[in-house]
Design a binder for these strands. Structure first.
Lengths: 329, 329
DNA sequence: CTGTTAGCGCTTTCAT
DNA sequence: ATGAAAGCGCTAACAG
């Protein structure tokens, strides 16, 4: 069933049907009623593809992420989808995997399908800016990055001040009398480095010892944290508290300390990052930093919708995380 | 830059360009080289939209899910995306939310965009069959459901034998000498009911007491499990073990027992379901049932790709879950 | 082997 | 207020 069929059945021309479809006011009430009756009878929906061929905006955005299984990304993406959907956009979510090529593939295909904008979720996308093949794809379409930045004219960002976030964790520990604090660094994205810097700076601010040995690189997993706990317990470095860049690894470290018979937080305090369900699953519940993926998602939508619709011209934004007290620090 | 521009620049007709683009063999090597040079020079990519207008298969599938934040769905969807992507398909993921209308909206839009097939992840989609508006959308496109079923001719399923899975949990507990076992039922999907039935049947098989009081309905959250533990501890029903339909709630129950000073598994055993990261986060690690979302995802892809490409004609499949021993039972 | 031409289903001037 | 006709960028007969 296409626009010609509708026109024939309603006894009008296709232009008239098109006018009705697009809510143009230049159609007589009688004609409009006739056409709408046919439309309804057949539950007709115009072909999005044919519309796309006319270069019309599709009221569609694409959200790209590296790994949907990561709960923090999932929460961000979910919020973005719900909010754009509420605003009448269609949202397609792409899982790009870790490769720039695949990301480019998805970006290109979405651009070809006339996506009105992109949201890139995760600081892993930062490196896209360095890739010559990707840049032209992003030039003509508005782009917003959640927790990342891209040195391109049309690319805006919603950032979380992770440096500040880890600072909060250190401040809290210091307020409780801790002096020997260790940081577990997870991954090596911009965000991970910002967190590490936040740790180093906070320690300096408090005049506390912070050598290279105070920062451990750990894998992003329970086992990564578990291994870190083991390393620390066997090592010579004195410590009474651990801050970790990701809840999962913090949960692993907590596990390691508990298994070694330490009491948490009395013998050692632990603070995670993300305020995830992992943090709440731990017993005692993990003290953690809330970096508010839902807020980030909402702001991404506001920014991107504003640019697409040509309304509000927001700049990039940075939000402040908050400490959430559990029972581990 | 379109096919006409390329044709002009290469000094050939658009058909020739189209032939090169589609790897037809009926082009002389010289012409082909000329055209490919132009293609490469401009990094030309044909418009997917225009191709779509010709009704060509787009080598695109859509994966729908109700809530991406649910880790079990996320794992399934992730696997499906990676595998289809590896096979050269483009995958668009849709988060439909809980409403049939929105699901219909996404299905329609994907059908309009010539999606070659659908994967519906989650037993929540079962009710789509009952909706007259959705059925026609699913009729002409191959559909595979992960962990769900639809009474439609073209709709195939990959199911997990959840009844059997919960049976495994009960068998394990009975082997350890437990007789008073309680089941925590989460949600009310087909899958949730199958699990509950599996519990009731296993209890009957072992000749153990199983009244209505032995099945508690709990919310799908840590707090749901926590509340259930409280109810059980305050109630009169004797119990030495708890089986729960979802790891999250099982983790909550475990938390509740530990906080009440019970030793797990000595005083009370706990078994969850999903073999999720939640289960591993618990200390002791939760004994749980692995329902293998990655396997389910892979099989979905095999089924759907088989139907789309007209190769293998697989029937619906059911896989068997496995018990994964942690430290709680 | 290559070019010409007729659509695909829609929107959009331009007439009437 | 309505209709006729020209595309949008591509593929697929059909000719040569």
């Amino acid at each position: 069933m296409n626009i010609y069929d509708v026109a024939r059945e309603a006894g009008v021309s296709i232009s008239t049907v098109s006018r009705v479809l697009n809510h143009r006011e230049t159609v007589s009430a009688a004609t409009r009623a006739k056409v709408e009756a046919v439309l309804a009878r057949h539950d007709y929906a115009p072909s999005a593809i044919a519309r796309g061929m006319m270069g019309k905006p599709m009221r569609m955005v694409a959200v790209l992420t590296v790994d949907l299984r990561e709960p923090h990304y999932a929460r961000t993406v979910y919020t973005i989808e719900r909010e754009f959907s509420r605003r009448g956009y269609e949202v397609t979510i792409c899982n790009t995997g870790d490769s720039v090529d695949e990301t480019a593939k998805y970006l290109r295909s979405m651009r070809d399908k006339q996506a009105d904008g992109f949201v890139l979720v995760g600081s892993v996308f930062d490196r896209l800016g360095r890739d010559g093949a990707v840049e032209p794809l992003l030039r003509r379409v508005p782009v917003v990055l959640a927790n990342g930045a891209l040195p391109l004219p049309g690319a805006y960002s919603v950032l979380v001040d992770d440096r500040y976030g880890v600072g909060l964790a250190v401040d809290h520990l210091v307020a409780q009398g801790h002096r020997d604090i260790v940081y577990l660094k997870v991954l090596d994205t911009d965000s991970a480095r910002a967190k590490r810097d936040g740790f180093v700076q906070a320690m300096a601010r408090h005049g506390l010892p912070c050598t290279d040995a105070h920062v451990l690189e750990v894998e992003k997993s329970l086992d990564g944290g578990l291994a870190a706990a083991k390393t620390l317990l066997e090592g010579a470095l004195p410590f009474t508290a651990v801050v970790c860049g990701e809840d999962v690894a913090a949960a692993g470290a907590l596990k390691g300390f508990l298994r070694a018979g330490l009491r948490v937080p009395q013998d050692v305090a632990v603070i995670g990052y993300n305020n995830s369900e992992y943090a709440r699953t731990c017993e005692p519940q993990l003290t953690t930093v809330d970096n508010k993926p839902e807020t980030v998602g909402m702001l991404c939508v506001q920014l991107l919708a504003g640019r697409i619709e040509g309304t509000g011209e927001y700049p990039s934004l940075t939000i402040q995380p908050e400490l959430v007290r559990g029972g581990t620090a």
